[in-house]
C-alpha cells in the first residue's frame, strides 16, 4: 500500500488535470488514447471503441474521454451534480488482464486519491444495457461511501457472447474530480488551473449551455421531427446492413458495420430526447428500447463478419 501512496503526486488542481493524469496513466499502461466519438451518445459505452470492439477475438486496449448526454438529467445548471451533458472516462481492455483491479487502483492514486487514507470498496453492481442488448458482472467502486467508477466484465454485447471477455472501467469525471478537488457545486469547479492567466470554472464553460440545452430538451425540441428522424435512422441502419458484403466499386468485401452503428447511436439519442420531451408512454418506452436493441444486435452481427470483428476470410481459414 505504501509504495503507491509514496509515489502519489500531489493533488490535481483542476478538472482538466484529472483528465490529463488519467490519460497519462492509461497511456503508460499501454492503452491507445482515443478521442471522443463525434456523435451524441448517452454514455462512453456507446463509442464503437467499446461496443463494437468488445466483440470478436481481436485484442484491444483503449482509453478515452466521451462527452455524454442524458437529456432528462438537465437541471438548467442549478443542481450541484446533475448535468444533461457531462464527461465519462472510459477504459476497455480485451482480454481483461488478471491485474485489472490493481491497474484501476493505480489510476486512483494517479489522480491523487491516497488509498492509504481512503476506504475503497468493490460493491456488487451488475451492469445491463437494454438498448445495447448487453450485460456484464462487476462492481460500483466506492471511495468513502461515494460511487466513483463502474467496473464491469462484459459477458454479452449485442446479443453475442464476449469471447474473450473485455474489462470495462467507467469514471464519472465531474463527480470524481469534484471529490478529488473538494468542490461542492460542479459549476464552481476549476476547469483549467486556478493560477492560469485566465482561470475558467466549469460554470464559465457550461452554465449557459446547460440552461440552453435544458430548455431545448424539455421544451424546444420538435417532437414530430424527432420521431421522423428516429424512423429514418432505423430505416437507414437496416438498409446499410442489407447491402451485399462485396463492394462492386473497390472489388473488396466491405460490410458497413460502423456507418450502420452510427444510425443506431442516432436512434438511441433521439429516443432519449423524445423521452425527455415526455411524449413516450410507459408501454411505448419498452417498444422503443426494443427497436434500438434490435438495431444494436444487427450491427453486432455485422461487425463480427468484419476483420476487426475477428472474421477470417474462408480462403485464409482453410
Amino acid at each position: 500500500m505504501s509504495a503507491r501512496a509514496e509515489n502519489s503526486p500531489v493533488r490535481p488542481r483542476s478538472f482538466q488535470e484529472v483528465i490529463l493524469r488519467l490519460q497519462a496513466y492509461w497511456a503508460a499502461k499501454g492503452c491507445a488514447i482515443l478521442q471522443p466519438y463525434d456523435m451524441e451518445v448517452g454514455a462512453g459505452t456507446f463509442h464503437p471503441a467499446t461496443t463494437l470492439r468488445s466483440l470478436g477475438s481481436q485484442p484491444w486496449a483503449a482509453a478515452y474521454v466521451q462527452p455524454s448526454r442524458r437529456p432528462t438529467d438537465g437541471r438548467y445548471g442549478e443542481n450541484p451534480n446533475r448535468l444533461q451533458h457531462y464527461y465519462q472516462y472510459q477504459v476497455l481492455i480485451k482480454p481483461s488482464p488478471p491485474d485489472l483491479q490493481e491497474l484501476y487502483l493505480g489510476s486512483l492514486d494517479a489522480i491523487g486519491i491516497d488509498t492509504s487514507l481512503h476506504d475503497i470498496r468493490f460493491v456488487e453492481d451488475d451492469w445491463e444495457s437494454p438498448t445495447l442488448g448487453a450485460w456484464g458482472l462487476g462492481w460500483e467502486v466506492w471511495c468513502d461511501g461515494m460511487e466513483v467508477s463502474q467496473f464491469t466484465y462484459f459477458q454479452q454485447v449485442g446479443g453475442h457472447d464476449c469471447r474473450p471477455v473485455s474489462g470495462e472501467l467507467t469514471y464519472g469525471l465531474e463527480r470524481l474530480a469534484m471529490y478529488v478537488l473538494g468542490i461542492d457545486h460542479v459549476m464552481d469547479m476549476p476547469f483549467n488551473d486556478p493560477g492560469s492567466p485566465i482561470p475558467l470554472t466549469y460554470g464559465d464553460i457550461f452554465r449557459q449551455t446547460e440552461q440552453e440545452y435544458s430548455r431545448h430538451n424539455f421544451d424546444g425540441a420538435t417532437t414530430e421531427m424527432l420521431l421522423r428522424h428516429f424512423e429514418d435512422a432505423e430505416a437507414e441502419c437496416e438498409k446499410l446492413l442489407a447491402f451485399e458484403p462485396q463492394d462492386p466499386n473497390s472489388g473488396k468485401r466491405i460490410v458497413m458495420a460502423h456507418p450502420a452503428y452510427d444510425q443506431c447511436i442516432k436512434a438511441s439519442h433521439l429516443f432519449n430526447l423524445l423521452d425527455a420531451r415526455g411524449v413516450i408512454s410507459v408501454t411505448e418506452r419498452q417498444a422503443y428500447i426494443g427497436r434500438v436493441r434490435a438495431l444494436a444486435k444487427k450491427c453486432a452481427d455485422a461487425f463480427v463478419t468484419t476483420t476487426a470483428g475477428g472474421w477470417v476470410p474462408e480462403s485464409a481459414a482453410s
Binding site: S96, P97, L137, Y153
Partner: peptide
C-alpha cells in the same frame, strides 16, 4: 446465482478466481 467468464478463459466463477 450468477457467474461469469473473464480474460480468455472458459472457467466460470462469481468474479475472477485468482
Amino acid at each position: 446465482p450468477k457467474s461469469m467468464r473473464w480474460g480468455s478463459g472458459a472457467l466460470r466463477w462469481v468474479r475472477p478466481l485468482h
